[in-house]
């Protein structure tokens, strides 16, 4: 986000495993502040059933700290609804940093919910804390290899690996694998003059297919 030059807006929708209750959606907006970094706002919704739903409203700020190093923070407000307790609010943070090690290699680190809060005071359910460390390596002009690990206070340790192939300036193809649960995924990105479209398909061994699409639009300055 710190490297964004123009304001942009994006929407994302996803369906998990073909169940209409498991629709996720997001709407996000990024505004660069010239030399003072960039601010962003996003609204995310998860699970739209009558029994349970959750929304997240995030406010983000990103700053380029040196030529090849940037970091960002985000504050999230969750609204969770369960048929048992009604709706309640909780707050958590997110931290990220991005470092370009050299021309070909980048490091990314992301921490979700660093202070480990609870969703509410009724249940013992904690908002999971998760730390991701990823490396991206540009093998050749057209091929990018990425690897990531995710260590969480709640879930099992996860490895992810992915490959992106740039067909031409406008079209990129992606494929990836993830452990625990084992998921393979495929994606396609189209970059236009002001618009970027990403389409993804994830295949879970047991629960079958999830699909998603996102559209980002970049405004003129």
């Amino acid at each position: 986000m710190a490297f964004t030059e123009n304001p942009s807006i994006g929407v994302f929708v996803e369906n998990r495993f073909g169940l209409k209750e498991l629709n996720n959606g997001a709407l996000a907006f990024v505004l660069p502040l010239k030399k003072n970094g960039a601010i962003g706002m996003g609204l995310y919704t998860f699970n739209q059933s009558v029994l349970f739903s959750r929304q997240k409203l995030g406010f983000a700020y990103a700053l380029k700290l040196s030529k090849n190093f940037s970091s960002g923070i985000q504050l999230n407000v969750f609204r969770s609804f369960t048929s048992e307790y009604g709706s309640y609010f909780s707050i958590c943070g997110e931290l990220g940093l991005y470092f370009k090690i050299n021309e070909r290699t980048c490091l990314g680190v992301h921490v979700f919910n660093p202070t480990s809060g609870h969703y509410n005071k009724f249940t013992d359910e904690r908002i999971p804390t998760a730390m991701q460390i990823g490396l991206a390596y540009q093998i050749s002009e057209n091929v990018l290899l990425v690897g990531e690990v995710e260590n969480s206070s709640v879930f099992n340790f996860v490895y992810k690996g992915g490959l992106e192939y740039k067909v031409n300036e406008k079209l990129r193809l992606q494929t990836g694998v993830k452990s625990d649960p084992f998921i393979t995924s495929y994606g396609l990105s189209f970059s236009g003059h002001k618009i970027e479209i990403n389409i993804s398909l994830q295949y879970h061994q047991v629960l079958d297919i999830s699909s998603g699409i996102s559209v980002d639009y970049y405004f003129d300055e």
């Binding site: 040196s66 090849n68 190093f69 940093l97 470092f99 090690i101 490091l107 680190v109 460390i133 690990v149």
Partner: peptide, 14 residues
């Protein structure tokens, strides 16, 4: 480990 040219230095471990 990255001892960046400048005031930052970073270290990541898995």
């Amino acid at each position: 480990r990255n001892d960046l040219r400048g005031p930052f230095s970073l270290r990541s471990r898995i």
